[in-house]
């Protein structure tokens, strides 16, 4: 463990819709306890939640690693799912490949990635088709 921060690792279950969002919920509660400004807490929680849900819906699960340091919250979301062929296209508001049954559940508006960009200070996506996706988010404190 780092001496000057907090380190978290979560396995994000791809099978279980009901428990989706527990990793970001844990981080949200931790940030509240740390006394960070409400806006920072909320931005982080929403950005991470969208990334977590994407792994559940599009990639069959993955891992989330979060480091809270004195200056930033850094989040790594990694999966071994189908990957994203055209990242620029995927980032566009409204673009979604979510199937009908997922849309029925209220997901698939194609807003997740653009919201992650909007709510974070830095965002990086690395993806390779049929290998997987890695999303890095940074929220400054």
């Amino acid at each position: 463990m780092q001496s000057d921060g907090l380190h978290f690792e979560f396995a994000v279950d791809g099978e279980n819709f009901a428990s989706a969002g527990t990793a970001s919920e844990t981080i949200k509660n931790t940030l509240k306890k740390l006394g960070l400004p409400p806006a920072t807490v909320r931005r982080t929680a929403i950005a991470m939640y969208e990334g977590e849900i994407n792994m559940v819906i599009h990639a069959g699960g993955g891992t989330a690693v979060v480091d809270i340091t004195p200056t930033a919250i850094e989040i790594e979301l990694k999966d071994e799912g189908p990957g994203i062929a055209d990242i620029e296209l995927a980032m566009r508001e409204g673009y979604s490949t979510a199937p009908e049954e997922i849309r029925m559940l209220g997901f698939g508006a194609g807003m997740g990635l653009s919201n992650m960009k909007k709510y974070s200070d830095e965002m990086k996506i690395e993806s390779e088709v049929s290998k997987g996706t890695r999303v890095l988010l940074k929220i400054n404190i």
Binding site: L6, K33, L34, G35, I68, I141
Partner: peptide, 10 residues
């Protein structure tokens, strides 16, 4: 909140 000071809270 754990502490007013963020470093102490961490």
């Amino acid at each position: 909140r754990l502490d007013e000071d963020f470093m102490v809270a961490l």
